[in-house]
Design a protein around this nucleic acid. Structure first.
Lengths: 235, 235
DNA sequence: CCGCTAACTTATCGCTGCTAACTTATCGCC
DNA sequence: GGCGATAAGTTAGCAGCGATAAGTTAGCGG
């Protein structure tokens, strides 16, 4: 009877058409992603929970993913695509390279704060992935777009010309530091998070540019002297 | 027979003295910490594994810790103490405030890279902790020492005088960004990690100081103009 | 209508965190 | 020495986890 008190699965999927077994896969990924977003702690995303959300029994998951890590990796790919879209939207129509860099960074942090569990999974969890993850990261859309903007900044004379990769890493680390710290310790008095992020990102870019001005790798004395000089000139 | 193939526990602790049940607690923490350091993935630290390492049965753990999270929290406290010690050692004898700041930051990143699983547990895992964790973080030794050095930098005129907390947060985020990203994506071509950290930390400090010079919260135009001006003056 | 097989299920294993209930060693005390 | 009291630690077991082996069912070609 339909109103039974047993915990029988309420909704059972119809079996897929003969050739279209693959249609279940994206549904599984979406269910896992939604489950991750809905529950604060990541280990609430169990194979069993995902299976029930999709309306299928747990072993069916393994017809589409080798193990749980592969499923989560698929979720991560999805998350990165979403992040890239958010960044592109934020940078749309911003002509100045430095402005676009800022827009990207702010969008990055904003995305992380809005989807903390997704961001945590994508960037903080020890996710054993396939071999060529180097390429997967370095060629991901968001990273490529970000680095291209760094190149634009170099062309505009904002950063010293050279290999954009280290600078991109530095700015990425700055954005990630803000995002991950705010996510990991949300109870600390950060104040307005967007303002905090803006200040940190601006400082990072400014610091990189200024470091270039001082000759790439300035000694502490040079930095201190320069700061004193600037301070004197400003007053 | 003593050489049987059964998985019988090889070492069984002697029962503790009557009043000294508490002596097991630090041993449990140490075992958990060592286990975490030895195994790459954090969930290899199971109650059963810890119990066996100490030479005790699993339920005995619960005589000293309410649950697994409490045990891990105790490990985190230990880790933070170790981090603070490392930072203090690194800053010892460095008189210049900016130099001490740099020494602290480098020691911070170095510690994180040397003890990735410890650092991950302490700063990246969603650790449900007791109520007043705000105080626990803000009054932890390492944070206090770090912020004091920021104050020293303000007194020395390196940073604009004011509330040291936001600046400390910013610099912490910079250090954490570098540390956590290097830990999370160790396969990326960071180059020499200490150099990368030095550059990022220097840039962060420089960026904060320069941001102050430009009036606290400069607009993009001001920043771009200032950079162009500096560039012109330098050439 | 039949057999093949893709798609999915049932049943189960070994593991986990955790708990209830039991045992044992050590203590002060007589 | 013997004796309860109780701290310290055990055995046995629960529910839930990821994962697998083996069975079942539905749809399609012939």
């Amino acid at each position: 009877m339909s109103s039974g008190t047993t915990a029988r699965k309420p909704v059972r999927r119809r079996r897929a058409q003969r050739g279209s077994g693959e249609q279940l896969r994206p549904e599984i990924v979406k269910a896992a992603k939604d489950l991750l977003a809905a529950s604060a702690n990541a280990d609430a995303v169990s194979i069993r929970a995902v299976a029930e959300a999709v309306g299928v029994t747990p072993p069916s998951i393994y017809l589409h993913f080798e193990d749980k890590n592969q499923l989560l990796s698929a979720v991560v790919v999805d998350v990165f695509a979403e992040l890239d879209a958010a960044m592109l939207t934020a940078g749309e129509g911003v002509e100045a390279p430095l402005g676009r860099l800022r827009a990207f960074g702010l969008a990055y942090v904003k995305f992380a704060v809005s989807h903390p569990e997704h961001y945590r999974l994508a960037t903080m969890d020890p996710c054993p992935k396939p071999v060529d993850e180097v390429d997967e990261v370095l060629r991901s859309s968001s990273f490529v777009h970000f680095m291209q903007t760094v190149v634009d900044c170099m062309d505009a004379g904002i950063f010293a010309a050279g290999d954009p990769l280290p600078v991109t890493f530095q700015l990425w680390a700055a954005a990630h530091g803000i995002a991950s710290l705010v996510i990991a310790k949300p109870y600390l008095p950060w104040g307005d998070i967007e303002a905090f992020a803006d200040r940190g990102l601006c400082a990072a870019a400014l610091g990189q540019a200024t470091g270039d001005l001082l000759g790439g790798k300035p000694t502490l004395d040079v930095v201190a002297a320069w700061l004193a000089e600037q301070k004197g000139a400003a007053s």
